[in-house]
């Protein structure tokens, strides 16, 4: 176990010194600061106001940018080390591949989750300092959703990283995955429904398989019981499933998906040539 934590710790320290981590933290921390400066907490749109509105806006932007941030920063984790011969040297020591791979995942998970989580904590602390009511339910839901979304995309990123030999190809695949999943949130799904090319069950299944769509529906479901801003697919899903059941699904499924991809990545990593 000590080697697992050693790898995780060193990956975390290395990441925190990297420029991408600074940009990543500034983007999410800056978003919260920008919302406060822009007076989002004082505005009211469609019934959302105060910190709830701020967190909602934060989460809606996070849906789009968090996956691509995780993918492009993580996908080169192993393939990049392989590319520049770091893997060749670091794996010449008595470290098992299991410890190396899962240690990297743990370290990287803390790196990508910490800034998005801390940005929300800052929002809550600042909001409470200026006397705004704290929406604890939303805070805990979003904390869980961000944890789940980070897990899903981290797993996908490590999966890609495990079989791709060059980091440029890894980046290309990561970008494609992001665009593909982004397209299959309501925009593309609505057009499929409107064209009546596929039956409803297939479209709902596609939506439920997409962690970004699940995240989006769960994030907004607490706010919009009339489901007016959610789109037809989200409406259908929540019409057939209770909200509590869907929230549990929206946290549990991406975590399992991430673990499944990470494990598949590990199987490839240990069966393929290392360098």
């Amino acid at each position: 176990m000590k080697n697992l934590y050693l790898i995780a710790y060193l990956d975390l320290k290395e990441s925190m010194r990297a420029k991408w981590f600074l940009v990543y933290s500034l983007v999410f921390g800056g978003l919260i600061a920008l919302f406060f400066i822009a007076g989002v907490t004082e505005s009211q749109v469609m019934g959302f106001s105060g910190l709830s509105r701020l967190l909602l806006m934060y989460i809606q932007i996070t849906i789009v940018i968090l996956p691509i941030f995780i993918l492009i920063t993580t996908v080169r984790s192993i393939s990049g080390d392989r590319d520049n011969h770091i893997l060749e040297y670091m794996l010449s020591f008595a470290i098992s591949l299991r410890q190396y791979y899962w240690g990297k995942i743990i370290g990287r998970f803390v790196t990508v989750y910490m800034p998005v989580f801390l940005a929300m904590v800052i929002a809550i602390v600042y909001g409470s300092a200026i006397g705004a009511p704290i929406p604890w339910g939303i805070f805990f839901l979003y904390t869980g959703l961000l944890f789940a979304l980070s897990s899903a995309f981290l797993g996908i990123a490590f999966f890609i990283s495990s079989f791709v030999k060059s980091s440029e190809v890894a980046l290309g695949i990561a970008f494609f995955v992001w665009i593909f999943l982004l397209a299959f949130i309501d925009i593309a799904l609505i057009s499929l429904m409107m064209q009546n090319r596929f039956n409803e069950e297939l479209i709902i299944t596609l939506a439920l398989l997409n962690p970004m769509e699940i995240f989006r529906i769960a994030a907004i479901s607490l706010f919009d019981p009339e489901l007016t801003v959610m789109g037809p697919v989200a409406f259908t899903i929540l019409d057939t499933m209770s909200q509590m059941k869907f929230v549990l699904l929206s946290i549990g499924y991406p975590i399992l998906l991430g673990l499944a991809f990470a494990y598949a990545g590990f199987s490839i990593f240990k069966k393929k040539d290392l360098v």
């Binding site: 060193l10 320290k13 290395e14 010194r17 990297a18 520049n84 011969h85 770091i86 060749e88 040297y89 670091m90």
Partner: peptide, 9 residues
Amino acid sequence: PQLPPPIKL
């Protein structure tokens, strides 16, 4: 190795 790798640690 022949060339020291660019380890960031």
